[in-house]
Amino acid sequence: MPIEFKKNRLVFRDAVQVEEAEALLEALQKKPTTQVDLAACTHLHTANLQVLMAARPCIDKWPQDPELRRWLEDVLIPES
C-alpha cells in the first residue's frame, strides 16, 4: 500500500497512484486533523496532490526527495 492509513496519521510511501486519491480524500474528510507523513514518498499522482492542496492537512514530515519537497512546500505551506 503506497498510503498507510494509521489512526491519526497517513504515511505515504514510494509513488502514490491515482487509485489512492479517493481513499485519501475520504480519510481527510473524516478526520481533518490527520497528520501526513511524506518522508518516504517519491512521487504522488496529481489527483493526490490536488486532494492535499484542497484539504490542507498538517504535513508532519516532508519528503526526503528535495525536488518533490520543494514542489510540495510551495503549495502546502500555509502562506503567512
Binding site: L25, Q29, L49
Partner: peptide, 15 residues
Amino acid sequence: PFPPLVELDTYRCSL
C-alpha cells in the same frame, strides 16, 4: 478555488 472537500472531484484535474 477548491470547492469544499465534500464536493471535490478527485478524478477531475483542477490544477
